[in-house]
Simulated assay, not measured.
Amino acid sequence: MRSHLALILDPDIGGFVQDPEQQQLGAILREVLAGWGAPDPAAEHAVLRSALMGGCIGVLLPGAQTPLPPIRADLFARYGLPWELGRPPEGGSPGRPDWAHLASG
């Protein structure tokens, strides 16, 4: 993950490298989210990307393991996807996690 971030960050501009493929994929995802009915496709795109990046960090970085079932449950609930799609974890859907307790403490 550190190598990936090092490759996509440009120290000269203090931001992410904006390559054409990344921009094209972002545009496609925003179009999909707009077609899905997102009131603000750009904001929804940021939420989706951050959730996916968080899941990746939890898998790739030793000591930073993140349980995937709650991330999957949140995304599947957010986008109205049936839990049975793909390869769901054993035990059935845990339901959408309640993240409100994190904001209070």
Rank of each mutant, 00 (worst) to 15 (best):
M1N: 02
M1D: 08
H4P: 03
L5V: 12
L5P: 01
L7W: 07
I8Y: 00
I8M: 12
I8G: 06
L9G: 04
L9P: 03
D10H: 07
I13F: 00
G14A: 14
G14K: 14
G15S: 15
F16W: 01
F16N: 01
Q18P: 00
Q18E: 15
Q18D: 14
P20G: 02
E21P: 06
E21K: 09
Q22I: 01
Q22T: 15
Q23A: 14
Q23N: 12
Q23G: 09
Q23C: 06
Q24N: 13
Q24L: 14
Q24S: 14
Q24G: 10
L25E: 06
A27P: 02
I28C: 02
I28G: 00
I28V: 10
R30P: 07
R30I: 05
E31T: 10
L33N: 02
A34W: 02
G35F: 08
G35L: 10
W36Q: 07
W36Y: 15
G37A: 09
A38W: 07
A38N: 11
P39F: 01
D40T: 00
P41Y: 04
A42W: 13
A43S: 02
A46L: 15
A46I: 11
L48Q: 03
R49A: 15
A51T: 01
M53S: 08
G54Y: 12
G54C: 11
G55Y: 09
I57C: 10
I57L: 15
I57W: 04
G58M: 03
V59T: 09
L60V: 05
L60H: 15
P62R: 14
Q65R: 15
T66N: 13
T66V: 14
L68Y: 14
P69M: 11
P70D: 04
I71D: 01
A73M: 03
D74H: 15
L75K: 02
F76R: 12
A77S: 11
R78L: 06
Y79V: 05
Y79C: 07
G80Y: 00
L81N: 09
W83L: 00
W83K: 02
E84I: 02
E84G: 03
L85N: 13
G86I: 04
G86C: 00
G86W: 07
R87V: 12
R87K: 15
P89F: 12
G91S: 09
G92T: 12
S93Q: 00
P94Q: 05
P94H: 04
P97D: 04
W99E: 08
H101Y: 06
H101A: 12
L102N: 06
L102R: 12
S104W: 09
